[in-house]
Amino acid sequence: MAEIRIENLHKTYKTESQSVNALRGIDISIPQGSFLSVAGPSGSGKTTLLNIIGCLDKPTSGSVFFGDENIVPMNDGQLTVFRNRHIGFVFQDFNLIPVLTVYENVEFPLAINPFIKEKHENLIMKMLEMVGIADLKKRFPSELSGGQKQRVAIARALVKNPSLVLADEPTANLDSENAKNIMEIMKRMNAELKTSFLFSTHDKLVMDYASNIVRLRDGMIISGAVE
């Protein structure tokens, strides 16, 4: 999959009394292997943008191309399959499944993905080694530190080899030491696997790691759009 192109993206939330324009004509191009950060204050529209790119939400108008494939006209079922194949997520709160071990958490995307033919164990162990927690594979999330949890989340996002990983404030719940480690890991993964990373953040540290920064305000790009 080549680059991701976002063209003239609008998103309007309508409530009974008013309508809020969360995104107002966004155009971004994200080449394969990007390490891109979307920055902006709260309410600037960065989460909305990530949700649309992550196929979790639909724009009011505009297009999102993954290569030649426009995801906007897709229905829920198609979007689910698309997410399953191409997109990994890293969440601010890690969102690990508490009853499953580290190993099983990483296995989840494989368990729901019928396209992966390789032996799961190999993929999972390779991933755990890459994020440096292979020895913790039998632990449960409650037995891990925040940094370790986020490593699990990264392994989980990457194990199915997606073309894009979306990370919404991935360091918000980490101390700076751990945040740094996490960013190091993601940067390395980005380099080794050629997976694109897209962050939303207002953490200076994350922006320092980013190869590119798009700044949003009031639903519009004020700087850094990649053309």
Binding site: T80, N84, G88, F89, P109, I112
Partner: peptide, 16 residues
């Protein structure tokens, strides 16, 4: 709810 949302975000289908 949040856990299920996570699973769905990762591509778990409704039927799953």
């Amino acid at each position: 709810m949040k856990e299920i949302g996570t699973m769905r975000a990762m591509g778990a289908s409704n039927s799953t």
